[in-house]
Design a protein around this nucleic acid. Structure first.
Length: 575
DNA sequence: GCCGTTTTCGGCCCGACTGTTTTCAGTCG
């Protein structure tokens, strides 16, 4: 098999690292292979665009050679040699809690363990507890994990984790002795997938808080419990692992920064501290004279290093850190949003009336919102016939007379039909304030046909936005066969905006693509696609996703004042 | 294995927790 794909190369580098770990190699050598993979991942260029690999920080002579060999031959002699040396099935054992490279290596060398079955046999025969460094408890724990039939998925999608985190936060609010708390980790950074949840809790009495949490939360198992932290598996269907970290008032900010990560971001901050002969940890910054400096908030910690504040969602690689040295990042924030341009009412498949939706948007402090019910072909969603649409249009115009601090635009989320035609005539569209086009059926068409549909929509003189451009549902379906690069070109050419659909179930486009949209100079709209009042709150997640992509407010049309937005809505390049 | 203008050798982030020990190694994040 010939490998050309960056993701596959990163996988191979990680596999080499796992083999080395089991071989008991120097942990820094193991980390070096992981880091080389990370360096590739964080580099925006494609493999073809990278000329001198060893020039990239984190990739040296050896790892560059491995990558070049993978590119040229599709396989790596380093990896092949390791595969000969060590049974591949051992890698799977790294997923068992409590087993790392050293212990697996020992089980393999001394007991001939090669996979879950042979490990189970060895445990049942009591051989494992005989090994030096192993004992009865380790053997029991291993047997227990091996007997737990269903393997927990490695990572879970953000909508699932948000629900769970909401549940935990409700409990935390009812726990005595909790002064404040925050989620941390991947959820605070708004990653699309994550493997666990983290919470930082300020309290003077960790024991009392831990006890109450154990009483009030549905619990599967306590994995670990000490004075500073508690790790549990929840009783939800996926038995999600949750870390609770306890902090006093003075170290809360440092604790939050540390456990928000990312790991990579922490390493970079530690290096920065080290350069100044200081040490940064979850307890603060230890200065050269041994004194400990604590901070009121995260921004103060960044300022201490001469950096501008970096929002949690932007704390992934080296890029943001370098930028934060030079000046404020000026990334979008929730308060920049002046309106929501995609929502549904009871006229199609929404749960609330137009008036209820409009009032809720207004009470959020928005200056405007746009009603965009479904179009006629989407019968399952009670899509609007041209007559009903025009009737609604009149109604919205009348409703607007009641407001002097808010504007409700009259729009539509129009289906792009399987043959590429659109669901209303230009004559109907010309009477609306805002036309969104999107795909809701015939998902399985090939890329050519899907792109033909999207191209037709972009070239229509009234379509101003393509909604949820890939159609993905997080954790459920991949979406249709979109050539996103080509779509961005089409959007650029025709002056059409692309949506970041902020619904927790979609986040479409993803932060990866959004960065490219901004680079191309294409405008973005962050919309919740609300079908009920409570869904409007997903705007926060939408903005967080945009921050991950490094989006600046001026590239997002619904941060604009209404006059500027109206100019955009009315003027389209006609190609 | 990678890195470097105090370093081409000797560091590499570092603390919590568990289990197996009786002072610490391994794992985890």
């Amino acid at each position: 098999m010939k490998i050309v794909n960056k993701k596959q190369i990163i996988n191979q580098l990680d596999t080499i690292a796992l083999y080395l770990e089991i071989k008991g190699e120097n942990p820094f050598k193991v980390a070096a292979y992981h880091r080389a993979g990370l360096a590739l991942e964080n580099d925006p260029r494609s493999m073809a665009g990278m000329s001198d690999l060893s020039k990239i920080k984190g990739i040296g002579k050896s790892t560059a050679q491995v990558i070049e060999e993978l590119l040229a031959r599709g396989e790596s002699s380093v990896l092949l040699a390791l595969e000969k040396d060590i049974p591949h099935s051992l890698l799977d054992l790294l997923r068992l809690p409590g087993l790392g490279g050293k212990k697996i290596g020992k089980l393999y060398r001394e007991l001939g363990v090669v996979d879950r079955d042979t490990l189970k046999d060895a445990c049942e025969q009591g051989k494992v507890s005989q090994l030096a460094g192993f004992g009865k408890k380790t053997e029991e724990h291993l047997l227990q994990s091996l007997n737990e039939q269903r393997q927990r998925p490695k990572e879970l999608p953000i909508p699932y984790m948000i629900d769970l985190a909401d549940q935990i936060e409700r409990v935390l609010r009812s726990v005595e002795m909790v002064n404040r708390f925050s989620c941390a980790g991947s959820l605070r950074r708004a990653k699309e997938k994550m493997k666990d949840l983290d919470f930082v809790i300020e309290t003077a009495d960790p024991k009392a808080v831990a006890r109450q949490l154990l009483e009030k939360l549905p619990m599967h198992e306590i994995v670990g419990q000490g004075d500073a932290k508690m790790t549990v598996l929840l009783g939800d269907p996926n038995q999600v692992s949750v870390d609770f970290r306890f902090a006093t008032q003075d170290i809360y900010a440092s604790m939050l920064l540390h456990f928000t990560g990312s790991k990579e971001h922490n390493v970079l901050l530690r290096r920065l501290a080290k350069e100044r002969n200081e040490k940064i940890s979850e307890y603060g910054i230890e200065r050269e004279d041994g004194s400990m400096r604590t901070f009121q908030n995260e921004a103060d910690i960044y300022h201490y290093f001469g950096l501008n504040f970096i929002p949690p969602q932007a704390r992934e690689g080296a890029f943001e850190l370098e930028r934060a040295e030079k000046g404020p990042l000026n990334l979008i924030k929730l308060s920049d949003i002046k309106g929501d341009l995609h929502m549904h009412s009871t006229w199609s498949d929404g749960a609330n009336t137009i008036a209820e939706m409009a009032e809720a948007m207004r009470s959020k402090g928005y200056a405007y919102a746009c009603l965009t019910d479904h179009s006629q072909s989407l019968r399952v969603a009670n899509g609007l016939s041209p007559e009903r649409l025009l009737e609604q249009n009149e109604k919205v115009k009348k409703m607007n007379q009641h407001y002097d601090d808010f504007t409700l635009f009259s729009g539509i989320e129009m289906d792009i039909l399987p043959d590429g035609s659109l669901d209303y005539s230009d004559d109907v569209l010309s009477r609306l304030d805002f036309v969104i086009a999107s795909i809701h059926f015939s998902f399985s068409q090939d890329k050519n046909q899907i792109m033909k549909r999207l191209e037709n929509a972009c070239r229509n003189p009234y379509v101003r936005l393509i909604a949820h451009p890939t159609g993905r549902m997080l954790g459920k379906r991949h979406g249709y066969a979109v050539d996103v690069k080509r779509l961005i070109e089409l959007a650029k050419e025709t002056g059409t905006a692309l949506e970041l659909n902020a619904s927790r179930f979609r986040l479409d486009l993803s932060s990866e693509w959004l960065g490219r949209v901004q680079e191309a100079g294409v405008k973005i709209a962050i919309n919740t696609d609300s079908h009920s009042l409570d869904m409007m709150d997903d705007m926060k997640l939408g903005v967080e996703t945009a921050i991950r992509a490094g989006i600046k407010p001026h590239n997002v049309i619904n941060t604009w004042p209404i006059d500027q937005l109206m100019i955009f809505l009315k003027n389209k390049k006609v190609i």
